[in-house]
Design a protein around this nucleic acid. Structure first.
Length: 107
DNA sequence: TCACTGACAAGGG
DNA sequence: ACCCTTGCCAGTG
Protein backbone atom coordinates (compact mmCIF):
# COMPACT_ATOMS: atom_id res chain seq x y z
CA UNK A 1 0.00 0.00 0.00
CA UNK A 2 0.96 3.60 0.43
CA UNK A 3 1.42 4.11 -3.25
CA UNK A 4 -0.37 6.76 -5.11
CA UNK A 5 -4.05 6.91 -4.49
CA UNK A 6 -5.06 5.93 -7.98
CA UNK A 7 -2.75 2.92 -7.76
CA UNK A 8 -4.74 1.66 -4.81
CA UNK A 9 -7.94 2.22 -6.67
CA UNK A 10 -6.64 0.07 -9.51
CA UNK A 11 -5.89 -2.77 -7.11
CA UNK A 12 -9.40 -2.71 -5.74
CA UNK A 13 -11.03 -2.56 -9.15
CA UNK A 14 -8.97 -5.51 -10.30
CA UNK A 15 -10.46 -7.51 -7.42
CA UNK A 16 -14.02 -7.03 -8.58
CA UNK A 17 -15.38 -10.51 -9.36
CA UNK A 18 -16.72 -11.24 -12.80
CA UNK A 19 -20.41 -10.58 -13.02
CA UNK A 20 -20.35 -8.11 -10.15
CA UNK A 21 -20.15 -4.35 -9.98
CA UNK A 22 -19.34 -1.76 -7.36
CA UNK A 23 -19.70 1.96 -6.94
CA UNK A 24 -17.27 4.82 -6.61
CA UNK A 25 -18.46 5.52 -3.12
CA UNK A 26 -17.90 1.91 -2.03
CA UNK A 27 -14.32 2.00 -3.23
CA UNK A 28 -13.64 5.31 -1.55
CA UNK A 29 -15.11 4.01 1.65
CA UNK A 30 -13.03 0.85 1.50
CA UNK A 31 -9.80 2.76 0.96
CA UNK A 32 -10.79 5.11 3.78
CA UNK A 33 -9.31 7.86 1.74
CA UNK A 34 -10.62 10.64 -0.31
CA UNK A 35 -14.00 10.81 -1.87
CA UNK A 36 -15.88 9.13 -4.69
CA UNK A 37 -14.60 11.94 -6.85
CA UNK A 38 -11.06 10.77 -6.34
CA UNK A 39 -12.05 7.29 -7.41
CA UNK A 40 -13.60 8.60 -10.56
CA UNK A 41 -10.60 10.68 -11.26
CA UNK A 42 -8.32 7.72 -10.60
CA UNK A 43 -10.27 5.48 -12.91
CA UNK A 44 -9.94 8.04 -15.62
CA UNK A 45 -6.22 7.31 -15.56
CA UNK A 46 -6.89 3.59 -15.88
CA UNK A 47 -8.61 4.24 -19.15
CA UNK A 48 -5.20 3.52 -20.59
CA UNK A 49 -4.79 0.33 -18.57
CA UNK A 50 -6.48 -2.75 -20.01
CA UNK A 51 -5.96 -4.79 -16.86
CA UNK A 52 -8.36 -2.69 -14.87
CA UNK A 53 -12.02 -3.63 -15.45
CA UNK A 54 -13.32 -0.10 -15.21
CA UNK A 55 -16.63 -1.15 -16.72
CA UNK A 56 -17.51 -2.82 -13.43
CA UNK A 57 -17.51 0.48 -11.61
CA UNK A 58 -20.76 2.40 -11.80
CA UNK A 59 -22.48 5.19 -9.93
CA UNK A 60 -24.18 4.59 -6.60
CA UNK A 61 -27.50 4.46 -8.42
CA UNK A 62 -26.42 1.61 -10.66
CA UNK A 63 -26.05 3.84 -13.65
CA UNK A 64 -23.33 3.38 -16.24
CA UNK A 65 -21.93 6.83 -15.93
CA UNK A 66 -18.38 7.54 -16.91
CA UNK A 67 -18.10 10.51 -19.18
CA UNK A 68 -20.63 8.96 -21.50
CA UNK A 69 -19.08 5.50 -21.08
CA UNK A 70 -15.51 6.66 -21.74
CA UNK A 71 -14.64 5.98 -25.35
CA UNK A 72 -17.35 4.01 -27.09
CA UNK A 73 -20.92 4.35 -25.96
CA UNK A 74 -22.05 0.72 -25.95
CA UNK A 75 -18.77 -1.00 -25.18
CA UNK A 76 -19.08 -0.74 -21.43
CA UNK A 77 -22.65 -1.99 -21.46
CA UNK A 78 -21.75 -4.81 -23.79
CA UNK A 79 -19.04 -6.09 -21.48
CA UNK A 80 -21.36 -6.09 -18.49
CA UNK A 81 -24.10 -7.87 -20.34
CA UNK A 82 -21.58 -10.47 -21.38
CA UNK A 83 -20.95 -11.11 -17.71
CA UNK A 84 -24.61 -11.74 -17.10
CA UNK A 85 -25.58 -8.30 -15.91
CA UNK A 86 -28.82 -7.03 -17.38
CA UNK A 87 -28.78 -3.40 -18.38
CA UNK A 88 -31.64 -1.26 -19.59
CA UNK A 89 -31.20 2.31 -20.66
CA UNK A 90 -27.64 2.42 -19.29
CA UNK A 91 -28.90 1.30 -15.90
CA UNK A 92 -28.26 -2.00 -14.13
CA UNK A 93 -31.36 -4.06 -13.51
CA UNK A 94 -31.37 -5.76 -10.11
CA UNK A 95 -28.49 -3.56 -9.08
CA UNK A 96 -28.66 -4.66 -5.47
CA UNK A 97 -28.19 -8.26 -6.49
CA UNK A 98 -24.95 -7.73 -8.43
CA UNK A 99 -23.54 -5.07 -6.14
CA UNK A 100 -20.19 -6.05 -4.64
CA UNK A 101 -18.52 -4.37 -1.70
CA UNK A 102 -14.69 -4.44 -1.52
CA UNK A 103 -13.39 -6.40 1.45
CA UNK A 104 -9.97 -7.45 2.66
CA UNK A 105 -10.75 -11.12 2.16
CA UNK A 106 -12.25 -10.86 -1.27
CA UNK A 107 -8.98 -10.83 -3.14
C1' DT B 1 3.03 27.55 -3.76
C1' DC B 2 -1.63 28.56 -5.59
C1' DA B 3 -5.32 27.48 -8.55
C1' DC B 4 -7.90 24.58 -11.38
C1' DT B 5 -9.65 20.09 -12.60
C1' DG B 6 -12.30 15.84 -12.19
C1' DA B 7 -15.71 8.21 -14.35
C1' DC B 8 -19.25 11.05 -7.76
C1' DA B 9 -22.62 11.50 -3.82
C1' DA B 10 -25.99 13.48 -0.90
C1' DG B 11 -29.18 17.07 0.27
C1' DG B 12 -32.37 20.73 -0.77
C1' DG B 13 -35.74 23.20 -3.86
C1' DA C 1 -39.51 12.52 -9.17
C1' DC C 2 -36.09 15.80 -11.39
C1' DC C 3 -32.61 19.59 -11.39
C1' DC C 4 -29.23 22.30 -9.10
C1' DT C 5 -25.79 23.17 -5.45
C1' DT C 6 -22.27 21.94 -2.27
C1' DG C 7 -18.54 19.03 -0.34
C1' DC C 8 -14.42 16.59 -1.23
C1' DC C 9 -9.08 15.97 -2.03
C1' DA C 10 -5.09 14.11 -4.93
C1' DG C 11 -2.60 15.53 -9.29
C1' DT C 12 -0.89 18.53 -12.58
C1' DG C 13 0.84 23.02 -14.43
Amino acid sequence: MEKHYYKQVFEVVKCIPRGKVTSYGAIAEFLELGTPRMVGWALHQCMFDDEVPAHRVVSSKGELIGRNNFITSDWMQNLLEKEGIVIVNSKIVDFHNVFWIPTLTSC
